[in-house]
Design a protein around this nucleic acid. Structure first.
Lengths: 219, 219
DNA sequence: TCCGTTCTGTTGTAATTGCAACATACTTAT
DNA sequence: ATAAGTATGTTGCAATTACAACAGAACGGA
């Protein structure tokens, strides 16, 4: 447990909480440290759970199986990352995904019902914790909404312009850097990389934008 | 205020809370009833806010302006609906959208910092309220994630099959009803209605599915 | 410097889409 | 029953895309 405190201290869920207060808080939350071997299922699709987890070591995958049994990996989670927080907080009956330890992993499991219940010992941290959790879920919500706005556009050109103009607006400048390389941007926008690359150059040739590596400028 | 209690009692945010307890809870939350004339801005893009709102009467629109100044309506909200809950809970500095009263409207504004703070008088309802709010945001999160999974597919056929197989899985049956008509489904999947209609018939002719109006069956 | 790897841009082609326009049910009000 | 309106299916065509395959640039060790 001691060796994981460092990771917990840097986790968003515990931001703003004094490291000294972390231990009593964890016991108040009934947090459970569990070790999983590579290949073990942490949460099984179809199950009900009230727990979410924090990856402390190793790696964890969010996996989905469709109606025909085709598996796909929705996310790879490294130490410090949360999983299942939306699923636990939404109190859904059957998990739509499975959580798999893709390497030997240590996990901290927390029952999310403990988050909202008032707590005698540590109430000061407790309300901070609730705010942190809401913050995490709400931020994810916003970024998902924005992504849908981009992907919903019909053509690659429109997707690019929607994304780039949002970045320009966020940077409050026509010049800005994006956090993706071309392949990552294509994946994010759900388009073909080479087609997107071609479209970017077409936009450049038409004088609509300039770019150099990750730096873009809208004209 | 009295005339709006009925709507508040049915709002998801207050589900599980005794109507009698609603009034003290609202004063504990410092909820403010505000009337807006048609055309007034409730929250302005670029502002900072810690408040979210509940529509009590009239209609409210979530509006976005892109870098070039093009306006688009992201949502129409009727009485009982929440707005800005993710934005307030995420504590973001500048709102990416504006909230407009598209008709004369009554709104209940609540400061979301009041949600997480412990409260002397009504703590029992308070923790229920927190769970409700987390529930709402987390559920939205899940449905957004799922929508992205569908939209991310490259072809209309793949989008349809992803969506329909998710519905079949949810219904635990190869026969199920969908909550959309064709136009709504096309909008949801971000594709052209007529092209989608054609693709559905192609899938039918290939023996992959059957459908009749809103009832579908995967084979 | 050389080599291998990764990233980005380019091109041709087959496949898919969006769009417009129209046809055919199915509904609903009169 | 008729008419008007709505939902759905059908078709042709131009525009766009995905995909594959390749070329050059940039990068990082050895």
């Amino acid at each position: 447990m001691e060796k994981f405190m460092e990771i917990l201290e840097t986790a968003d869920l515990f931001s703003g909480i004094d490291p000294k207060d972390l231990k009593p808080l964890l016991s108040c939350l009934s947090g459970k440290f569990v070790h999983y071997e590579k290949g073990q299922i942490i949460l099984m699709s179809g199950e009900t759970t009230n727990s979410f987890g924090i990856v402390l070591s190793g790696q964890v995958q969010v996996i989905q199986e469709d109606y025909y049994g085709n598996r796909s990996i929705l996310a790879n989670l490294d130490p410090g990352n949360l999983f299942g927080e939306s699923l636990a907080c939404a109190e859904i009956k059957a998990l739509p995904v499975s959580i798999l330890a893709s390497a030997d992993s240590d996990i901290l499991l927390i029952d999310c019902r403990r988050l909202s219940s008032p707590c005698a010992n540590a109430c000061d941290f407790h309300s901070k914790l609730i705010r942190n959790m809401m913050n995490i879920i709400a931020k994810k919500n916003i970024s998902l909404t924005q992504k849908i706005e981009f992907i919903s556009k019909r053509t690659t050109r429109e997707k690019l312009l929607a994304y780039l103009s949002a970045e320009a607006k966020r940077a409050k400048s026509s010049r800005f850097y994006i956090p993706f390389n071309r392949q990552e941007l294509a994946d994010y926008l759900s388009v073909d990389r080479s087609a997107m690359s071609a479209e970017l150059c077409r936009l450049r040739d038409e004088g609509i934008l300039k770019f150099n590596k990750n730096q873009f400028e809208l004209l």
